[in-house]
């Protein structure tokens, strides 16, 4: 799956499902970067058909609506939408 890694401090496994055109996704990425958090993201609109199917199947496990951004921390906490406070709590920022 076409995930892109962004370097930073290890705050656990942080994955975000995003769209390259979505402003809330951009804000989520910026927030993580500003806080120097290592994470990986998948821009769903940049994937080919096969990759997209796989990514959607994975996203659906966490978020039935398959909306972006969806932040998944340590394969246990899921935050739908750019909710700064919830992300802070999940990452102890």
């Amino acid at each position: 799956m076409g995930a892109t890694k962004v370097d930073g401090n290890d705050k656990g496994k942080v994955r975000i499902f995003t769209l390259s055109t979505c402003i809330w996704c951009k804000k989520t990425k910026e927030f993580l970067a500003q806080n120097n958090v290592a994470y990986e993201y998948v821009d769903m609109d940049k994937l080919d058909s096969e990759e997209k199917d796989a990514a959607l199947a994975e996203l659906k496990k966490w978020n039935e609506k398959c909306s972006m951004p969806t932040v998944v921390v340590n394969d246990s906490v899921c935050i739908v939408g750019f909710k700064e406070q919830e992300i802070r709590e999940a990452l102890s920022l």
């Binding site: 055109t21 979505c22 996704c25 769903m44 398959c66 909306s67």
Partner: peptide, 20 residues
């Protein structure tokens, strides 16, 4: 700008924050 990107990509201004 994202609406312009989607117009170019899809031929119509799909919502930038939803999966087209």
């Amino acid at each position: 700008e994202s609406l312009l990107v989607n117009e170019e990509r899809y031929g119509y201004a799909a919502c930038p924050c939803r999966l087209s």
